[in-house]
């Protein structure tokens, strides 16, 4: 067999393998992608919450995209406490102003950033939230102060539709 012929044969087999591999990949993808959120899940709308009955010092929990969202109407003391914390004391430094558009209202995902449990209201060493699963303490701004959680609780996209209504998402 001449050298030329060998090369051509190799090329044929390589091309066949390569084209075949592309097809396998293209076939596998739909089987994987079908597990991603489907069109109806992606289209899930925002939630509007009526907060007119919420008094200062209280928290309500609403469901948004299958997760709890805490809405806390904070008292003046709580606001000044949240603002007085020095940045260097924080594990994940964030100013309270950056977390609450209106200092009276804290809207955040009620999901512990450690492993996804729901923290308890008005518990813990910092008068905020305490996660019972693995002992993470959050302050009144939802910032992590003590325990295994790496970051502060997440703030979702939200806006005030009017004075009584908050739209999350």
């Amino acid at each position: 067999m001449s050298k030329n012929k060998t090369t051509r044969r190799d090329f044929l087999f390589t091309a066949t393998y390569a084209v075949g591999a592309v097809g396998v990949g293209a076939t596998v993808w739909p089987m994987i992608d079908q597990m991603n959120p489907d069109a109806s899940v992606k289209a899930l709308a925002s939630t509007e919450v009526d907060v007119s009955s919420l008094t200062p010092g209280n928290t309500i929990t609403v469901l948004w995209r299958g997760k709890p969202v805490f809405i806390r109407r904070r008292t003046q003391e709580e606001i000044s406490e949240a603002k007085s914390v020095k940045m260097e004391e924080l594990k994940h430094p964030e100013k309270d102003e950056d977390r609450a558009k209106d200092p009276e209202w804290l809207v955040m995902l009620g999901v512990c950033t450690h492993l996804g449990c729901v923290p308890l209201n008005d518990k813990g060493d910092y008068n905020g939230w305490f996660c019972p699963c693995h002992g993470s303490h959050y302050d009144i701004s939802g910032r992590i102060r003590k325990g295994p959680a790496p970051t502060n609780m997440e703030i979702p996209k939200y806006e005030f539709v009017n004075t009584n209504t908050i739209k999350i998402g």
Binding site: P30, M31, D33, Q34, N36, D38, A39, S40
Partner: peptide
């Protein structure tokens, strides 16, 4: 993974597969 074996929901879940699930119609 998407089908619901219930007399009230089976037909609807098949339509859900056909319309909303990624590549559901193909599968």
């Amino acid at each position: 993974m998407h089908y619901i074996a219930h007399a009230d929901m089976a037909f609807e879940s098949v339509e859900h597969i056909m319309r909303d699930v990624n590549y559901g119609w193909l599968i």
